[in-house]
Amino acid sequence: MKALAASARRRTGFHINTVGTIGAAIVLFWIVIAICAPLLVPYPVGKIVDFDFFGPMSQKFWLGTDYLGRDILSRILMGARYTVGIAFAAVSLACFVGVALGMIAAVVGGFFDTALSRFLDALNAIPSLMFGLVVVAGVGSSIPVLIMTLALIYAPGSYRFARSLAANTNTMDFVTVARARGEGTVYIIREEILPNIIGPVLADFGLRFVFIVLLLSGLSFLGLGVQPPNADWGGLVRENLAGLPYGAPAVIFPSIAIASLTISVNMLIDNLPTRIRDRSA
């Protein structure tokens, strides 16, 4: 049995532990849901299908109904598109920009580093909800604007984080050796710095993802996020908050959905597959 597992592992060349597998499975599940949602929803998202509001779980409405009597299951399934899609796009953009700029600043140093750091610190000082409010009021709300706004809000933090990690790695002798060899900035960043900071950077990615889901729900609550009748998960929680005293499934299930997604993203990122390196080969 063990030998079998070992040979299977050698074939794939990667090894992932149980926690990582569970995380990956849940993330994958939500991604599939997000893609296939229109085929799966039992009722149209905006349609009031029940006379009762905050209805209980039933044969007809698996996860109950919301404050207007709309089907929660349908709303969660469709909400996955917004939450997973917008949050992933925004966090990827924020981390890519932040990490890339952070590494460049750490390696290049000097005036470029100082100017960029101060500028992004200034950006960081603007309250995020306020910033979102101004942008959406000015440009109007659409999904690309939402993604850009969220990315812009979270990029400075990612920059700071990556810059401090890269600055530490930058002083190591192997980077000095690469410099003395005459290597360019791009090579040093890509081959010498990035592989050594990728672990913490990915952990930061996971945390930032959670923050973005929360901020997105905040924006939706203010009517700046996803526009009704659609709603992201955060929006679903907010709009059904009044049902909490009754223990309505309408508020519990979107919360569970958010928790399962954010926790599994972090589980996956903390336990990424590691390549099996055959030392004897």
Partner: peptide
């Protein structure tokens, strides 16, 4: 370094004290 030619850089190499930090751990 930036003002030197690749050939000049090649002919002179530097080896550091701590091999632990002089080799990229990844």
């Amino acid at each position: 370094v930036s003002g030197r030619s690749r050939e000049e850089l090649r002919k002179m190499q530097i080896v550091f004290q701590l091999a632990d930090t002089a080799l990229n751990p990844n």
